[in-house]
Design a protein around this nucleic acid. Structure first.
Length: 450
DNA sequence: CATCGACCTATG
DNA sequence: ATAGGTCGAT
C-alpha cells in the first residue's frame, strides 16, 4: 500500500520538501504548537509525530509523511450533520492553505536562492521544507515581545502559560497515542487571549508571577494601547476584536508604514517589528536582524565585522541596515523566507536535523545514505563516537540527541564525509575565525549586588 | 543622534 | 555570560 490515512484524518498530497512540519513548527516562528510522538510503525513512511494548535474555535491536528499531510480539526462538543462536516473540511483546507502559504512554491524559491548563493546551496538538501508561516498578527506581536533577550524554550513556556492563564480551555483531548476512550490524562487546549483581556491593569503583576520579567509590562501596555486606540468591540460577523482586525489590516500597508505603526508599541523595537512584519503581515522581504543573523552575515556573506570579532558589537541601526541591505541584495524579494532557512540551520536544536537516519537500527546501525562513506563498513565504537563528538566541540542538544541516538551516529558519519562544510553551522568557535589581535577590551560591568 | 546600562530569568 | 532586545538617560 502506498500510505495509510490515520483514522479521523483527511489527507492532502504535499511533499515534505514543500513543507516540513518538524522544522517549521519548532524553529521559533510559532511558540504554541504542541507535538506528540506517535507509536513507532513498521512503515518508515508513516508519521512519527502529531502536532496540535488551539485556534479560537477548534483544535488543529496534523501529521505528516514524506508525500502527504494529514489533518483534522476538533471542535468543542457538538454534533454535526455530514453536510456540516463537509463544510468544515473545506474550511480546514482553506486554513491550511492560508497558514502555511501553500500557494508559494518553496522548491522554486530554493532553486532561485541556490543559484544566487553558494552558502544556501549547500544547506538546501538538509534543511528543506522551511517556509514562513502566515500567523495571527496579535499573537505574533505578543510572542515576539516575549522574545527579547530570551530563548526559544522559555518563550514557548511563557506563551503557553499566558494562554492557560487568560483563556478558558476550549476543549480537552487525549494525547494521540492513547485510545480515545481512555480519559485518564486529557490535555487542555487554550486559545490565544484577545487584546482586551491582556489590557487589564493587573496583567502586569500576574505575568511577572508567571516569569515574564520586564516583558510583563510591555505586553499589558501594548494591549492597552491597542485597545484604546483601535477598539475592542467584536464585529457581528467575526470572532475577533476590532483592534485585531486593524492589526491584520497592516497587511495592506507598505512595509515602511506598517513598521512605523508597530514601532509605536512598547517593547517593540526594530527586530520585533520585523518579526511581526515577516511572520504575520506578508512582508516577505523583511529580515529580522538579531545577533545571530548578524554573525551569519559576517561569517558567510562578507559583512565587515565592527568592533571585536568575538565581542557582540552593538546592534546599531546602522549595522542593522547593513545586514538587511546585504542579505536582501543576495536573496531578493523573498529574503525573509531565505533568512529563516539559514537561521534554522544555525539553531543548536537543529544540529542533527535533516540527516538520514537508519531506521533498521536493530542490527548494526549501518549508515547507507552517504556515498562518501568509506566502502568498508565503518563501525562507530563508543570510543570513536566520543572522540568525534569532542572533535566537533559543539554544544549538543541533550535530550534530542538521546532520543535519536541512531541519528547521531549517522550524523557523525555524514559530518566526517568529505564535501560537508562544517563551518556552515559553526557558532562561536573561539579557535577558528577569531584571531583578531585588536584589544579584547572587556567592558567594565557595573556589578549588581549578589 | 549614537552610546550605554538596566532590565527578568533560566541555563551553560 | 548569554539567550532571536528595548527603553530611557546622557
Amino acid at each position: 500500500m502506498a500510505f495509510t490515512t490515520p483514522v479521523g484524518f483527511r489527507v492532502l498530497p504535499l511533499s515534505v520538501v514543500q513543507l516540513s512540519l518538524a522544522a517549521v513548527l519548532k524553529c521559533g516562528q510559532s511558540f504554541r504548537w504542541t507535538s506528540y510522538p506517535l507509536p513507532s510503525s513498521p512503515s518508515a513512511e508513516s508519521p512519527t509525530h502529531e502536532y496540535r494548535l488551539c485556534l479560537k474555535d477548534r483544535i488543529v491536528c496534523l501529521r505528516q509523511s514524506p508525500d502527504y499531510l494529514f489533518y483534522r480539526s476538533v471542535f468543542p462538543e457538538e454534533q454535526l450533520s455530514p453536510a456540516q462536516e463537509g463544510v468544515r473540511d473545506e474550511e480546514m483546507l482553506a486554513w491550511l492553505k492560508d497558514y502555511f502559504q501553500l500557494d508559494v512554491d518553496l522548491v522554486k524559491l530554493y532553486d532561485q536562492w541556490s543559484g544566487r548563493d553558494q552558502v544556501f546551496d549547500k544547506l538546501k538538501s538538509r534543511f528543506s521544507g522551511i517556509r514562513i508561516l502566515r500567523q495571527d498578527p496579535w499573537e505574533t506581536l505578543v510572542s515576539f515581545i516575549c522574545s527579547s533577550n530570551n530563548n526559544i524554550p522559555r518563550i514557548t513556556k511563557m506563551v503557553h502559560a499566558l494562554c492557560k492563564q487568560y483563556s478558558p480551555s476550549l476543549v480537552a483531548l487525549p494525547p494521540p497515542s492513547v485510545s480515545e476512550n481512555c480519559s485518564r490524562d486529557l490535555a487542555m487546549y487554550h486559545p490565544f487571549p484577545p487584546p482586551s483581556v491582556l489590557a487589564a491593569p493587573d496583567v502586569k503583576s500576574t505575568l511577572r508571577t508567571l516569569g515574564f520579567g520586564y516583558r510583563a509590562d510591555y505586553i499589558q501596555r501594548t494591549a492597552k494601547m491597542l485597545v484604546d486606540t483601535h477598539g475592542s468591540s467584536i464585529s457581528p460577523s467575526g470572532t475577533r476584536e476590532s483592534c485585531e482586525e486593524w492589526l491584520t489590516g497592516l497587511r495592506r500597508m507598505s512595509t515602511e508604514d506598517a513598521r512605523e505603526e508597530l514601532l509605536k508599541f512598547v517593547g517593540v523595537g526594530r527586530k520585533v517589528a520585523d518579526c511581526v512584519l515577516l511572520m504575520s503581515l506578508d512582508k516577505r522581504e523583511v529580515i529580522p536582524v538579531d545577533t545571530h543573523v548578524h554573525q551569519i552575515a559576517i561569517k558567510h556573506y562578507g559583512l565587515r565585522a565592527t568592533g571585536g570579532s568575538k565581542a557582540k558589537s552593538a546592534m546599531t541601526p546602522q549595522v542593522y541596515a547593513q545586514v538587511t541591505t546585504k542579505l536582501v541584495e543576495i536573496w531578493g524579494d523573498f529574503a525573509g523566507w531565505a533568512h529563516s532557512v539559514l537561521f534554522t540551520a544555525d539553531l543548536k536544536a537543529f544540529s542533527s536535523f535533516g540527516i538520514q537516519i537508519s531506521t533498521t537500527a536493530t542490527t548494526t546501525g549501518h549508515v547507507d545514505a552517504s556515498p562518501a562513506s568509506s566502502p568498508s563498513k565503518r563501525k562507530y565504537t563508543k570510543t570513536q563516537e566520543r572522540v568525534d563528538v569532542q572533535k566537533r566541540k559543539r554544544a549538543e542538544v541533550k535530550e534530542k540527541v538521546v532520543v535519536v541516538a541512531a541519528a547521531t551516529v549517522a550524523a557523525l558519519a555524514v559530518l566526517a564525509a568529505p564535501g560537508y562544510d562544517s563551518s556552515l553551522l559553526e557558532d562561536d568557535n573561539p579557535g577558528s575565525a577569531n584571531h583578531d589581535t585588536s584589544s579584547p577590551r572587556r567592558k567594565r560591568r557595573k556589578r549588581s549586588s549578589d
